[in-house]
Design a protein around this nucleic acid. Structure first.
Length: 418
DNA sequence: TCTGGGGTCCTAGGACCC
DNA sequence: TCTGGGGTCCTAGGACCC
């Protein structure tokens, strides 16, 4: 038996934790560069502001309705998420952290499941200040769906226990909702299922799993089986190592110079390599990409992408950066206005880097250098030590005009109460 | 003027082998 | 060179998730 605990409008709720004055005010949180809407409080949803709306298109509406607008503050959200997960773990026997705002918990053998769900919900509210909803069911897909019902229907008081619903009620609920509300069914599958006259959750529930498998593959078949209460997806208590590490960002203004692209690539590479070492992996391939602005059809478009296999798998920032610079040289075209750049580390393995015969001394030096770098950045903040190549230009830096304080992670941002 | 970022899994098709 | 069945491995692209 699974429970899914999910923070309500998580980023928006985080912004409210230290701003009780915003408790009833509509709140939105924007993506990087203050580009799109990525989180909305219930009041904002009522204003018909949608997920993914570009901010410049809704800015006027937001101003007229007194919406509180925030740039995304991942330091704050990350810290509150960690507190939320610890709080859940203090009550649930085993949990899987599924995303920044969601966790599955193993409820097998729990006597009063609704009671425990309510207790988790209350404790997270009291200890962290984040409102949540809980869905309880025999499979993860159903738990997700039950959570969705709990969010949408106030009569559940935040906790929906699927097995407690009558057969009639379950069917009625499933008939009322489009199939794309289900975990694993996106809009494309939604479109193609509609052609088979499968448009509600109930339609899919009644479909023949083998027919669905042959037409849509195993993932959709699994959704049906899970909807019938047969678990196909297990709880993953330990997060598996990442298989690739990607860092990319749009620039706040267009960039044309190679040195500035190099500065951005350097920053991404440092960050990706730090994550690589954190999970004790090495990478065998480095990829680099640079894009022009696809929305500016009046300007020359270009997207450059290349990947390079390293002779020896590495976790050395500088070795990886050298490879990335060579790739940048290859894909760079002058006369283009670039909007975005990124790096990808892939073919990751957990092998110890093999010192090659001719540079064994170098590789030991590099490992201790990386260790020193990581220790300093751990202690004094992630970008305390960085490469001089990052310091070129400023157009590529992220815009975050509406950033809230890091209430919980910076001494200088601590709230004062008088 | 202004349009996010970071992942995973599955499948189809090509190359290659016996 | 083609024939046919059967298999593996790799990659690109599509689809999904938050």
């Amino acid at each position: 038996m699974y429970a899914l605990i999910d923070g309500n409008s998580f980023f928006a709720s985080c912004e409210r934790v230290f701003r009780p004055d915003l408790w009833r005010t509509p709140v939105v949180v924007l993506s990087n560069n203050d580009g799109c809407v990525v989180a909305r409080s219930a009041e904002t949803k009522a204003l018909k502001i949608r997920m993914g709306d570009p901010y410049f298109k809704i800015a006027g509406l937001a101003r007229r309705h007194g919406v509180a607008v925030f740039s995304s503050n991942y330091e704050l959200y990350g810290d509150l998420s960690a507190r939320m997960m610890q709080t859940i773990a203090s009550l649930a026997p085993a949990i899987e952290i599924y995303s920044i705002d969601e966790a599955f918990a193993d409820f097998t053998g729990i006597q009063n499941q609704t009671g425990l769900g309510t207790e988790i919900r209350n404790r997270v509210m009291q200890w962290v200040g984040i409102p949540t909803c809980v869905g309880i069911a025999p499979t993860k897909t159903l738990a997700k769906y039950a959570n969705h019902l709990a969010k949408k229907n106030p009569e559940f008081q935040g906790v929906c226990n699927w097995p407690d619903l009558s057969e009639t009620e379950r069917r009625t609920r499933m008939r009322q909702e489009v199939v794309t509300e289900l975990w694993g069914i996106g809009w494309r599958l939604g479109e193609s299922l509609a052609k088979q006259r499968i448009s509600t959750i109930y339609d899919l529930y009644c479909a023949n799993p083998s027919m669905i498998r042959s037409k849509y593959g195993v993932t959709v078949e699994r959704v049906i089986r899970e909807m019938h209460g047969h678990p196909c997806i297990e709880l993953e208590e330990v997060t598996p190592r990442q298989k690739q590490i990607l860092r990319s960002r749009s620039f706040s203004q267009m960039v044309t110079g190679k040195d500035e692209l190099k500065a951005a690539i350097t920053m991404h590479l440092h960050s990706a390599a730090a994550t690589l070492r954190e999970q004790h992996s090495t990478a065998s391939s480095v990829g680099v990409f640079i894009y022009s602005n696809r929305f500016r059809e009046d300007k020359p478009q270009y997207s450059g992408w290349d990947i390079k296999q390293l002779p020896v798998p590495s976790c050395d920032t500088f070795a990886l950066a050298r490879a990335a610079y060579r790739l940048l040289d290859r894909i760079f075209r002058p006369g283009i206005e670039y909007k975005k750049a990124g790096v990808v580390l892939s073919d990751l393995s957990d092998d110890i880097p093999q010192p090659d015969l001719f540079s064994a001394g170098d590789s030991c030096r590099s490992l201790s250098l990386m260790k020193a770098l990581d220790q300093i950045n751990d202690r004094y903040g992630r970008r305390s030590i960085r490469s001089a190549a990052e310091m070129v230009g400023h157009q590529w830096h992220m815009r975050r005009d509406k950033l809230s304080p890091c209430y919980t992670t910076k001494w200088t941002d601590l709230r004062a109460v008088s």
